[in-house]
Design a binder for these strands. Structure first.
Length: 496
RNA sequence: GGGCCGUUAGCUCAAUUGGCAGAGCAACUGACUCUUAAUCAGUAGGUUGAAGGUUCGAUUCCUUCACGGCUCACCA
């Protein structure tokens, strides 16, 4: 009795035996007087008054002693010990109790006391099986370490590894705190299409799908941007959306094909205002969720207390290399520099694109403390408003923390004629072979022609933010079910 | 897609130079009425990721494949 097939069979036999004795192993409901967490909170009164309680949980440990048994029940991450005695239950019920396994859910009735070793414990008068478990849980002491199993069977990971549970609790609290923060500032949360006839608002390869009844191809969105801006045209002045984007790109420790993005738009603001706003928002979130404004990330301490450093992209390159700003003036110069740095450059790459590549190579990984990189090349920012004094640059920033890009924001381009020219430049790049260049969206241009107020908008990668807040080195650690290759077909043995 | 590393019992891990595949926990049987990584005695559990190859002999060496991790490229 002990390879997996045998153990599964063993548990099936116990299940059948319980059924034969009239036990329903999967009853509908169980009325508790207290959750386990509530028992612990109210323990002083419950012990002093010797009150009868009913609670429920999953059996996670088991120590049998002949005619008594100790076990721990877990409910929603909180554990309590139970003490089961044959002289309390009677022999028949006690023998049946021994048919239970680690992993089963039970409801227990009894009262609280302290053991000799001073552990709060329920002495059980009566129990009910609530769910029979047919597969063994991972081992109690070493837990579950196999990364593949952790991701494929995340429920086991959550049961076996308390730190994993904490990460996803924190993720939930962080997202709730973001909603609270924005709602307090008069933002409204909206939902825009995930399936779009044209994938817009970012430079990325999309997933494509097909609607049968309409007989049309649709793209899973790579960004909600163009729809959110239509809402600004429609008179909503502060909107945000927290939802999934889909990009058909490679996977890495920082990229999952579907990822969660916050985008928000603020009318009458520009990118300078958004930098102030972002500093305050992230520092407030850290204070609220972590209780402090410092992050421990990869052996470094990150200080989120504002103000944060603001550097133009050209200044950042100069600050982190021996390149001078004046050496980045024209296309030929940056092509030469890229060549010296062994940065692969495409023949038709623009000045702006090469400058961005140089920046990513020499400066980006060094931006550990929060840093706004501002004033991007216009050529790589087709939706951003140009700087009034220099049309080669736009009012755009990206926020880097811990060497990762966390946010991307700009003064939104609301001049429909300029926007049309920018789209046309993208179409030309696409024709030249860049399959990530953006599409010309006539419907969006029509909206802009009706008038969008001056607006600043920002996107924040929620997964990466959670990585920072939880000191996680891989995006898979903060996504419950990260994308993996298809699993091998389950073996016959495994199905038994 | 490229490079490097990994895959041994349900879980966590061993196995010397190529020489009988092992331990702890989990499981099963028995003992045990305050244990808590319960204890004690015993039992069982393996297509060493898959398929080939070299060899008297392969967990070990070689090839191909699958899956995972890191990394490079692409991106956020």
């Amino acid at each position: 009795m002990a390879n997996l097939a045998d153990e599964l069979q063993q548990r099936q036999h116990k299940l059948a035996e319980l059924r034969n004795k009239g036990t329903n192993p999967y009853p509908q409901r169980y009325e508790r007087t207290h959750s386990i967490a509530e028992l612990i909170r109210q323990k002083d009164k419950l012990v002093a008054d010797e009150l009868k309680i009913k609670t429920a949980g999953r059996i996670v440990t088991w120590r049998g002693h002949g005619k008594t048994c100790f076990a721990h029940l877990d409910s929603d991450g909180t554990r309590i010990q139970i003490y089961v005695r044959q002289d309390q239950l009677g022999e028949a019920d006690y023998q049946q109790f021994k048919l239970l396994d680690i992993g089963d859910f039970v409801g227990v009735e009894g009262s609280l006391f302290y053991t000799r070793t001073n552990e709060l414990t329920i002495v059980v008068d009566k129990y009910n099986l609530l769910t029979k478990s047919l597969r063994p849980l991972p081992e109690k002491w070493h837990g579950l370490k196999d990364v593949e199993t952790r991701y494929r069977q995340r429920y086991l990971d959550l049961l076996a590894n308390p730190d994993v549970r904490r990460i996803f609790l924190l993720r939930s609290r962080l997202i709730q705190a973001i909603r609270d923060y924005l709602n307090q500032q008069d933002f409204i949360e909206v939902e825009t299409p995930m399936m779009q006839p044209l994938p817009g608002g970012a430079t990325a390869r999309p997933f494509i799908t097909h609607h049968n009844a309409l007989d049309m191809d649709l793209y899973l969105r790579i960004a909600p941007e163009l729809y959110l801006k239509r809402l600004l045209v429609g008179g909503f002045e502060r909107v945000y959306e927290i939802n999934r984007n889909f990009r058909n790109e490679g996977l890495s420790t920082e990229h999952n094909p579907e990822f969660t993005m916050l985008e928000f738009y603020m009318a009458y603001a520009d990118y300078n205002k958004l930098m102030d706003f972002t500093e305050d928002m992230l520092a407030s979130l850290a204070q609220q969720v972590l209780g402090k404004q410092q992050l421990e990330y990869a052996d470094k301490t990150i200080e989120l207390t504002p103000p944060w450093k603001r550097l133009t992209m050209l200044e950042a390159i100069a600050a982190h290399s021996s390149i001078k700003e004046t050496e980045l003036g024209d296309l030929k110069q940056v092509q030469d520099i890229a060549g010296e740095l062994n940065i692969p450059v495409d023949k038709h790459d623009s000045w702006g694109k090469i400058v961005q590549k140089i920046f990513e190579q020499v400066a980006e990984p060094k931006l550990i403390q929060p840093t706004f990189i501002i004033d991007f090349p216009t050529e790589v920012s087709p939706l951003s408003k140009a700087k009034p004094d220099n049309p080669a640059l736009v009012e755009r920033f990206e926020l880097f923390i811990g060497g990762k890009e966390i946010a991307n924001a700009f003064s939104e381009l609301n001049d429909p004629q300029d926007q049309r020219r920018r789209f046309e430049a993208q179409v030309a790049e696409r024709a030249a072979g860049d399959d990530e260049a953006q599409y010309l969206d006539e419907d969006f241009l029509r909206a802009l022609e009706h008038g969008m107020p001056p607006t600043a908008g920002e996107g924040i990668g929620i997964d990466r933010l959670v990585m920072l807040f939880t000191n996680s080195q891989s995006i898979r650690e903060v996504i419950l079910f990260p994308q993996l290759r298809g699993e091998k077909q389950t073996t016959t043995r495994d199905k038994e």
